[in-house]
Design a protein around this nucleic acid. Structure first.
Length: 884
RNA sequence: GCCGGGGUGGCGAAAUUGGCAGACGCCCAGGACUUAGAAUCCUGUGCCCGUCAAGGGCGUAGGGGUUCAAAUCCCCUCUCCGGCACCA
């Protein structure tokens, strides 16, 4: 590169960032300064922001909170000699774009192009060093072709519980033809080899749906009557659609699912291998919701009724059973005289929306069905009820009710005057069923439980479970709250599902024939029937296969979490048109080293991406098991504080959004970047203060003047002590800046650089330093500023006639010796109160330190005439004298 | 209701994880420069007593405890934010 930039340098002596910022960005891009090289010998750093949907509103200063720090890291690692991947792309499919397009009567692709161009402009404005040659857009056929490709991988895979991994479905078919499902533990649907071999094509296809990782099933779904689409469980908040806010209704449709539940255990276990915010890990654990217990069979007239419990030690306290309204045994067991009431109850329960069930909250409802079950542990007949506080989708959809030790059962029993029997007695207290005001769900010794009486809490569950297994009453069982991931959307703007339905069953599209492209349409308003608008385009829907059979394309599209479950892999080789990515590239770059975004994706995107990664790993497509090694979440930036001291979120509707555009116009991009870092701890929510931004602008002006204003004349030569102190401050700062960048402590990166600036300004004004010393100081400071204030650093670099570009320089070397302190301040306390501060040389002996401490006049004053009981010495820190 | 994270000057916040509370910045006040203002620079800035000194008292939501020593650890209470919400 040339030593002088081929653009006019603004020669204003003053710091006027607007004069040069835009010009540098243009030059950097023209010179491809931030272009990432393919896999090579260097260590790599993959630093990634969450995949954004480019909203029409553009970026606010709140959004910049994560883009600036990740950019600082990317720039820092480049200077440290890493091969850095820092890309950006668009999560372009999905409802927001589609709804905006419908509203504005335009095409969502056009809108995305427009919105993303604006985002890109803003990213450039604030100096983010993305490699735009790797830009991706999940709504383009070049991208979603491979989303479809991965869908097919899931479709052609099943999870083998014996090997704890996904395997090709062909291997299952082979096994079925030889041994049926005999060897498969907990088979989802059982079959013999003979039966399998007698199946026709369609029967086989349908049977395999029980095993495929991508499968279709009729399912009660959340129907959003406003957005006219099905919502995932995660998209329903308090019974309302997360976007429309409409009350969610129930509807039964054929839905596509990914069998994420097979990975529950691994998704929990592998959390221990990754460096994520603890609170996100916890949310994932809770979401997956593992509970260990036992399944137990209770005999009824309709056969064994299986229940799940985490407290098999309370079996002797079961006084009734409860079935979910949808449980098949309700119909089988209900006696004629109860039938009318039960049917009525079930009908009402099924009609209730989630919100209505939640609203009724505490008040339990239910009906006795007239039948009894036999408790296997004591042969007691207990009544069977149906109640909507038991859900079909968890466990077996049936419970044994132990009112003495479960609050929900307790409330139910009290309301319907069912017996309560205490079978767990806590320490030092005797529970009396008559007088209890609430259930006792805690630990204690077993009671009223036959041979188990007196068994202590810590071994009770295990002992009883083993006994149940021996007796054949039940078995240990682990349940998870996690449900399979529903991906069907009855919408136009999503990845088409590469499936054709025929009379013979489902047919997949050949990999080579992908992508199945979205047809161009005039109207993509959703249909009120629940079908996708694609269903109305008969020339697209109807297909004639090569052998002449007629088929109908799947008209559901995939939810956008499919797109964002693998985009970080695509970035490693984004223009590959033969494969989703080159194996070498994906395995070199992944996993992502540092992944940054908001905490709102804790259980959706972050769980699904982990799941897809594990499937692709199992199928030998990638060699890593977790997608994101380190995850950090930024705190939200709130609107400026209001008069009453409260804050609110920035939102367009409240008219309190502050944009980077206006801040850059006023203060320049570098000051904005510095303030984004400085505002508070990265993870903490905090209000915006434009006055604070004026502060970082002022700081950068001081830096500018430090470099570009002439020094005072007739200054004395700096003495050795001054030189030492300057170098010490310099290298201590260098160490701190590096440590803090790595630790995500960006706010203290700025404050320590401010401190160093103050030291250097004072130094410059008070003495003339030897050329080499001063040059080292200036150089080091400017190089440290390069990742943070890239425009100003480059401009000063150019004005100092250095070789373009500062962003291709090495990070400055750290001199640990120079950073060493020679003195420290010993804090002298008497009875824990500070009474003196003494400067002492590092490495001073304890005796000498004590001597000096007791010589201190003020310390003497507090110690004199008192009895010295203890003296505590913490080397290099503090001395505490305890007197009486 | 359950789980998690917070609460530190007038404001945003630091504090090497048990060792000087308030770094750094904002605001504010006084001063310098200026015809004047803006900008910039210097000084001060937790509260209280003391003289604007020396020195001292109090102080990290509130109360209690452990410790030579607590913003930091433990218990209780208040409060704000996020998640889950009949998961047997």
């Amino acid at each position: 590169m040339t030593s002088s930039p081929n653009r006019p340098i603004a020669q204003s002596p003053k710091y006027v960032p607007q004069d040069f910022e835009a010009g540098w960005m243009q030059k950097w891009e023209a010179d491809e300064l931030y272009k990432t090289a393919p896999a090579d010998e260097r260590p790599k750093a993959y630093i990634l922001d969450f995949f954004p949907y480019p909203s029409g509103d553009g970026l606010s200063v709140g959004h910049c909170r994560n883009y600036v720090p990740t950019d600082v890291m990317a720039r820092y690692f480049r200077m440290k000699g890493y091969n850095v991947l820092h890309p950006m792309g668009w999560d372009a499919f999905g409802l927001p774009a589609e709804n905006a397009a419908i509203k504005m009567k335009t095409n969502p692709a056009k809108l995305i192009a427009q919105f993303s161009a604006n985002y890109k402009r803003q990213f450039r404005l604030i100096g983010i060093s993305f490699d735009w040659s790797r830009e991706i857009n999940s709504s383009t056929p070049e991208y979603y072709r491979w989303t479809q490709w991965i869908f097919l991988k899931l479709y052609y895979a099943w999870y083998d519980p014996r090997e704890h991994r996904a395997r090709p479905i062909a291997e299952l078919e082979k096994e079925l033809s030889v041994t049926g499902t005999r060897e498969i533990p907990n088979a989802r649907a059982e079959i013999t080899a003979d039966e399998w071999n007698a199946f026709n094509k369609k029967q086989r296809s349908e049977f395999l749906s029980n095993y495929r990782l991508a499968y279709r099933k009729p399912s009660v779904v959340n129907w959003d009557p406003v957005d006219k689409t099905v919502l995932a469980n995660e998209e329903v908040i308090d019974g309302r659609g997360w976007r429309s806010g409409a009350l969610v209704e129930k509807k039964v449709l054929q839905q596509w699912f990914f069998r994420i539940t097979e990975y529950s255990e691994r998704l929990i276990a592998d959390l221990d291998t990754i460096d994520w915010t603890e609170h996100i890990k916890l949310m994932q654990r809770n979401w997956i919701g593992k509970s260990v217990g036992a399944e137990v069979d209770f005999q009824t007239d309709a056969g064994a009724l299986r229940i799940f419990t985490t407290r098999p030690d309370t079996l002797w306290g079961a006084t009734f059973m409860v079935l979910a309204p949808e449980h098949p045994y309700v119909e089988k067991l209900v006696t004629p005289e109860h039938k009318a009431r039960v049917n009525q109850y079930v009908k009402e329960a099924k009609a209730k929306t989630e919100v209505e069930r939640a609203e009724e909250d505490k008040d339990k409802t239910g009906v006795f069905i007239g039948a009894y079950a036999t408790n296997p542990v004591n042969g007691e007949p207990i009544p069977i009820w149906v109640a909507d506080y038991v859900m079909l989708s968890y466990g077996t959809g049936a419970i044994m009710a132990v009112p003495a030790h479960d609050q929900r059962d307790f409330e139910f029993a009290r309301k319907f005057h069912l017996p309560i029997r205490v079978v767990i007695q806590p320490d030092g207290e005797i529970l009396d069923a008559e007088k209890m005001e609430r259930a006792y769900p805690h630990d204690g010794a077993m009671a009223n439980s036959g041979i188990f009486d007196g068994t202590p809490a810590d071994v009770a569950v295990e002992k009883v479970t083993r006994w149940l297994e021996e007796k054949g009453f039940g078995a240990k069982r682990i349940n998870y709250k996690l449900r399979d991931w529903g991906i069907s959307r009855q919408r136009y703007w999503g990845t088409p599902i590469p499936i054709i339905h025929t009379a013979e069953g489902e047919i997949t599209i050949d990999e080579q024939a992908l992508p199945i492209e979205l047809p161009n349409v005039d109207s993509y308003e959703p249909t009120a029937t629940g079908e996708s608008p694609l269903a109305n385009i008969s020339e697209w829907v109807s297909v004639t296969l090569p052998d002449g059979t007629q088929g109908r394309r799947e008209t559901d599209t995939m939810g956008t979490f499919a797109c964002s479950s693998w985009y970080y892999m695509r970035f490693t080789d984004p223009r590959n048109d033969a494969q989703p990515f080159d194996v070498k590239e994906v395995n070199y770059w992944c996993p992502v080293d540092t992944y940054v975004g908001g905490a709102e994706h804790a259980v959706m995107h972050l769980l699904y991406a982990r799941f897809w990664t594990k499937v692709l790993y199992d199928l030998d497509i990638v060699s890593f098991i977790e997608p994101f090694q380190r995850l950090r979440n930024q705190g939200m930036i709130m609107a400026p504080q209001m008069k009453d001291g409260k804050y609110e979120k920035m939102s367009k509707s409240k008219g309190n959004v502050i944009t980077p555009d206006e801040m850059v116009a006023q203060f320049g991009a570098d000051a904005l970047r510095a303030y984004e870092m400085f505002i508070s701890d990265f993870s903490m929510a905090t209000p915006w203060q434009t006055d604070g931004l004026a502060g970082t602008h002022r700081w950068l002006t001081r830096v500018w003047n430090l470099f570009l204003e002439p020094a005072r004349e007739n200054l004395p030569q700096a003495n050795d002590e001054q030189i030492k102190l300057l170098r010490r401050a310099l290298h201590q700062t260098l160490k701190k800046v590096e440590d803090d960048i790595n630790a995500f402590a960006f706010n203290t990166v700025i404050s320590s650089l401010m401190t160093l600036t103050n030291v250097m300004v004072k130094a410059k004004d008070s003495a003339r330093y030897p050329e080499a010393v001063w040059a080292e100081a200036l150089n080091t400071l400017l190089l440290m500023l390069a990742p943070i204030a890239p425009f100003m650093a480059e401009e000063i670099w150019a004005r100092l006639q250095r070789t373009y570009s500062i962003h291709q320089q090495k990070w400055p070397p750290y001199d640990a010796d120079a950073a060493k302190e020679e003195l420290f301040t010993l804090i002298v306390q008497v009875n824990g109160k500070v009474r003196g501060k003494i400067e002492l040389p590092v490495g001073v002996s304890e005796d000498e330190a004590k001597q000096k401490a007791f010589d201190d006049v003020n310390v003497k004053k507090w110690v004199e005439g008192k009895n010295i009981e203890r003296v505590l010495y913490v080397p290099e820190r503090l001395l505490n004298v305890v007197v009486k």
